[in-house]
């Protein structure tokens, strides 16, 4: 098996798993019924994509681990998600800002993955992109509506952007795993997506009347597993407790 390919696939699957779980935390408590259902749909899309990515990861690894084993029987240090996906939901505006920033990257990355030299990856990207294109439209429109809304919603959206901004840079980091994926034609160079990301971001933030922070500092350590934020462990205790308490329970 290819260690780098396994690593790449867990990055993809852990992004959608962790963000999908975060978004699902709104189920039943979102501000209005319509947003509640929309967020649950988004969460379900992401968890569905997780099944595809992590199943393939398990297959590539060849040690008999399936998607469930990877999702529920690994601990923090084995997760390879971007730090932005594990950040707490905060208020509804912060959740939508996190979603928008992730969607903006996700759309571009999946679009590029459709040309992957690995047909299995291209197929997952093709299927996911349809869902994620809608996620992007919805989160962009909500960010615009709230940013260019009332004084309070504007203030909250600007605070959300300022808070999440230091997690944006990690999306475009590139390491040895990426280099191997690029060399094999499996995945794009993350850095090459930055200009398109900035164009989308600038357009939406202008309409939302929000100011993009000038500071380029960015956290790292999620996608390579070196240093997750403290939030992921807490999230996993919620997400994994049933499988930890009753290993391999099914119903």
């Amino acid at each position: 098996m290819s260690a780098a390919l396994f690593e790449f696939l867990t990055r993809m699957g852990d992004n959608t798993l962790v963000l999908g779980h975060r978004v699902s935390e709104w189920c039943g408590i979102a501000p209005v019924l319509e947003e509640d259902i929309a967020l649950a749909n988004t969460a379900l899309d992401l968890i569905g994509q997780t099944t595809l990515w992590l199943s393939l990861a398990g297959e590539v690894e060849g040690k008999g681990r399936d998607a469930d084993a990877l999702a529920f029987h690994r601990d923090v240090w084995d997760f390879r998600n971007l730090l932005i996906t594990e950040q707490p939901n905060g208020d509804f505006g912060q959740t939508m800002m996190r979603q928008f920033l992730f969607d903006c990257w996700h759309v571009l990355y999946l679009d590029a993955l459709r040309n992957s030299s690995d047909a299995r990856i291209a197929a997952i990207a093709e299927k996911s992109l349809k869902e994620v294109t809608y996620h992007f439209e919805r989160s962009a429109e909500t960010v615009i509506g709230l940013g260019d809304g009332t004084e309070e919603s504007h203030r909250r959206m600007q605070a959300a952007l300022n808070r999440l901004w230091p997690f944006v840079g990690e999306m475009f980091d590139s390491d040895a795993v990426d280099q191997e994926m690029i060399a094999q034609g499996i995945a794009p160079d993350p850095q090459a997506l930055r200009p398109a990301f900035d164009a989308k971001l600038t357009d939406v933030m202008a309409k939302a009347t929000l100011a993009i922070p000038g500071d380029d500092f960015s956290h790292a350590g999620g996608r390579n597993g070196a240093r997750h934020t403290e939030h992921l462990g807490h999230m996993l205790t919620q997400m994994q407790w049933l499988q930890r308490a009753y290993p391999d329970a099914t119903w």
């Binding site: 319509e34 259902i37 809608y134 439209e137």
Partner: peptide, 16 residues
């Protein structure tokens, strides 16, 4: 359903 404008109403209808 409730929505702030027509476009969001279509999106909400899609989701609901």
């Amino acid at each position: 359903l409730h929505a702030p404008d027509a476009e969001m109403a279509i999106k909400n209808a899609r989701d609901v």
